[in-house]
Design a protein around this nucleic acid. Structure first.
Lengths: 343, 343
DNA sequence: GCTTGACATGCAACCGGTTGCATTAAATAG
DNA sequence: CTATTTAATGCAACCGGTTGCATGTCAAGC
């Protein structure tokens, strides 16, 4: 019934090498304690038997599992995979294994996952956590936790500040002669959406641009298509979308309607999840999810080493990535130019 | 130095409940062995102390960890996240935790990951494994392994048969009057690539079409762009690409060169990872990665239960999803039509 | 009323390592 | 040449559970 492997144990190696298991253990963990001769003997025996230390047993006696957990709201959202990949790679460098959890944007699910993982991991990285501050603080009291895109005081966190990039986008559009623009929003509860929306408003005010905000609960290609009519109805010449998927939907709809981008209308995305893979390639705000994932893991490793859990708040600024969906405003030869025919 | 939690142990619960640890253990694993009274006492004590069984200790004595590992070539490739998500969800239903491994398309890395995971997992799901058959068989001898998109005799496997969809694609193009087409390949080691390539060849032969195969090691947007020149150079009027990303890159390049799709050139992708999110929306072969992920996990759970490792080979058929990048061949009014000018 | 079970619980070994302390042998000091 | 240190290894307890077998209890069977 027991699905145990009959892998050789430390005792068998000890017997084969003519030493006790303490020595075998030491040969693998602190070889400098043993004579070179003995270490050699033990390694030879281990090699010959195909011995590999039992991770579980080791974890039991040391309390160190060499695992961490990474929890994201939705693996399938293109924003996360590069982050996951980076975190993975970084964990790998320290010989850590990573558990992946998918919360489905659901706080209860997230809590349940954390419960399942606790006890086999040394620490957590929670990405865009949907838990309450209290829950996060609570978990952080048991195990080291690092947050990404969640700003809870006292918990080490990495924040991607899209406001800087969005501000650049507005300035970029202003420089191209656009006078009136639209911000196409994203999910209601989203911290990023709030951050972006207010960044657009602030910058527009400073630069004397006119902004219309259009709500659009679902950030996705199809909803981007559908919202396009309302966007055009505002008479704006440019739009900044909550994310790249929305922007991409808009591009498709504009193309269908024979509106040339960027000649007739400019579009800016956010998060750069599509790379240059739209046509025309999308001007967007950089995402720094790769750095965020990497930084979160380094921070966690650091905390696991130094015990001293510091209140780190690490902000990654973003910037505008100018590609081909933005250009001079229609009927606006920058400063001078011909009279505006559209009014 | 030991980062151990001072969580209550089974002994403390035992003391508090006035029983031995055996009984506490049984209360949690086989409560029907104990009197209701005792179970109640133990649960009360456990509750009061906040006791949670130690996963590691349990795993050590039972050899059952409640973990499985999922290894993919590249998390960031849009083909995988939905599969990962589905597998996750399925594992979750059985209270299993999943380790995620990213092999970076590298057999050595994959091997290393498997090594790291073995010993803490009960089984593996290897997706599009880049290991040799021998290596896979070797690992499968130690731990249950389920493969996705890899056909190794004797190892339980889930295969997404893109051949059916690709055959439909060729027929579709033939029906539209295309006479000469190109297959733009994918990674060398990829089983899917071989499968698709031979499906294209076979169908084309049956339908009397002319096919050129162009190799293209890296399946990605940029490489799709770059390969386009060679594709056009063949004089073909349609191309089937190894995957959607490649196809998308080709679309962008074609657009840049002023070649209209589908009027001047038809493009078919594979895997349907982009949905309708290209412009024009891409005709492609459906992917069944979600079902594959789910099926693989169910199969693995099954194997873990029934021990009897069966030689399962589960094939998921695909079909063509016709969108807007395919249309009548240039200069080919179906059957009749004007003489072919290009020769 | 004594035997026979069935049921509930305890005992102790075991899973496979790690580690503080004791022991022994060899090296250095006096 | 003996006393003291130092280096290498062994001993045994421990990590926190699980589980086969022994023990004890109480009720039913004869």
């Amino acid at each position: 019934m027991t699905p145990r492997q009959n892998r050789p144990t430390i005792n068998q190696v000890a017997a084969a090498a003519g030493v006790t298991k303490s020595s075998v253990s030491r040969a693998f963990t602190r070889p400098e304690m043993l004579s070179e001769e003995t270490v050699r003997k033990i390694f030879a025996a281990a090699e010959q038997l195909g011995y590999v230390p039992n991770h579980t047993a080791r974890a039991l006696s040391t309390g160190r599992h060499g695992n961490i957990a990474l929890i994201v709201p939705d693996v399938a959202n293109p924003f996360f995979p590069p982050l996951i990949r980076a975190a993975q790679a970084e964990a790998d460098r320290s010989d850590y294994c990573v558990f992946l959890g998918n919360s489905d944007e659901n706080p209860q699910q997230e809590d349940k996952l954390i419960g399942r993982f606790t006890g086999q991991v040394e620490g957590f990285v929670l990405v865009s956590s949907r838990l309450s501050d209290e829950q996060i603080i609570d978990h952080a009291a048991r195990r080291p936790v690092v947050l990404i895109n969640r700003d809870v005081k006292g918990i080490p966190r990495i924040l991607i500040d899209s406001a800087t990039g969005v501000a650049e986008a507005v300035a970029h559009l202003a420089g191209l002669g656009h006078k009136k623009l639209v911000y196409v929003g994203g999910p209601h509860g989203s911290w990023s959406n709030k951050q972006r929306r207010s960044a657009v408003r602030r910058s527009a005010r400073e630069l004397g641009l006119d902004v219309t905000v259009i709500s659009n609960e679902f950030a996705a290609f199809e909803s981007g298509r559908k919202i396009t009519a309302s966007v055009l109805a505002t008479g704006a010449t440019a739009a900044i979308a909550f994310d790249d998927l929305t922007a991409q939907g808009m591009l498709a709809e504009l193309a269908d309607q024979g509106i040339a981008v960027p000649a007739d209308f400019a579009v800016v995305g956010c998060d750069d999840v599509l790379g240059a893979a739209t046509y025309p390639s999308l001007t967007t705000v950089s995402n720094r999810s790769v750095e965020a994932g990497k930084a979160a893991l380094n921070l966690l490793m650091d905390i696991l080493q130094n015990q001293a859990i510091r209140d780190v708040r690490y902000v990654l600024n973003t910037n505008l990535v100018i590609r081909k969906t933005t250009g001079p405003a229609r009927n606006a030869t920058s400063e001078s130019g011909s009279p505006d025919q559209s009014r």
